[in-house]
């Protein structure tokens, strides 16, 4: 099973060190391309004017908010069912990144909402469910560090992540299920994207750039978590010897 191969920490570190430089390069290129296309090439919207450019940082952040949480839920399931050593580390490493993206989605959405909707915030289904996602991330981070025994903290956080995953499809389909102020999907929808290619390509470039950015941070943070686990092992060795 391919998962078994990369659940080995030493093998994971070798792979991570090999692909990190490539991921950093690809992230830089995609973010630079996305920013250039979004700020200088994409046309202003015929109704929203230049405020539409907020979309190029808001929508990728919102995609990542859901994507990272989905990864945490998968890692949590793998951790609880198969007890793979890297799964908890991947979930713990992902949570602050997901929280940051969710925060960005909320704030940039608010900055777009004020000129377009005339309000910073409205308690509609999409905005409220994303706010709940942000609190789920914070809860995950708090529970992970609330136990003296890191394994117990990881297990409790994994259960929270799995229970909270029900919120992800609610976010995605909230604009279809309820009558919301937030506009419906225009990229990932039945029948293909409804957005013009001049705006779609900058958006996809930024989306790929954000995804690669997450991969880079995730690899670095898992490396850091592995060293942290090694340091804890050295601590227990010292206690045994004392």
């Amino acid at each position: 099973m391919i998962l078994d191969r990369f659940a080995n920490p030493a093998r994971f570190l070798r792979l991570a060190n090999a692909i990190l430089p490539w991921c950093v390069g690809a992230t830089t290129i995609m973010l630079a391309a996305g920013l250039y296309l979004g700020l200088f090439v994409a046309p202003p919207d015929y109704q929203q004017g230049d405020s539409v450019r907020i979309m190029y940082v808001h929508v990728p952040a919102a995609w990542m908010a859901m994507f990272v949480y989905t990864n945490i839920a998968i890692a949590s399931a793998v951790s609880l069912i198969w007890r793979h050593p890297l799964a908890d580390l991947a979930a713990n490493a992902s949570a602050p990144i997901g929280a940051a993206f969710t925060f960005l989605a909320l704030v940039t959405g608010s900055l777009w909402g004020k000129p377009m909707w005339g309000t910073w915030w409205v308690w509609d289904a999409r905005l409220t469910s994303v706010l709940i996602l942000f609190f789920l991330y914070l809860g995950h981070m708090a529970i992970t560090s609330a136990f003296d025994n890191p394994a117990r903290g990881a297990k409790a956080a994994a259960v929270l992540a799995l229970v909270g995953f029900v919120n992800v499809p609610i976010i995605k389909f909230s604009v279809d299920w309820w009558n919301t102020l937030h506009q419906p999907a225009s990229v990932f929808r039945m029948g293909g994207p409804s957005i013009h290619p001049d705006m779609l390509w900058p958006l996809l470039a930024m989306g790929l750039g954000y995804t690669l950015f997450y991969v880079v941070l995730l690899l670095l943070r898992i490396k850091s978590e592995l060293i942290g686990a090694r340091l804890r092992a050295l601590d227990s060795l010292r206690q045994d010897a004392a």
Partner: peptide, 26 residues
């Protein structure tokens, strides 16, 4: 950016600050 600069630039600026912060902390 016309009259929307006060909303567009803070969006990009905050995104840059938060993402740079994540890299620095990590």
């Amino acid at each position: 950016m016309g009259s929307y600069g006060g909303y567009v630039w803070p969006s990009y600026g905050l995104s840059a600050v938060i993402m740079a912060g994540l890299v620095i902390v990590t």
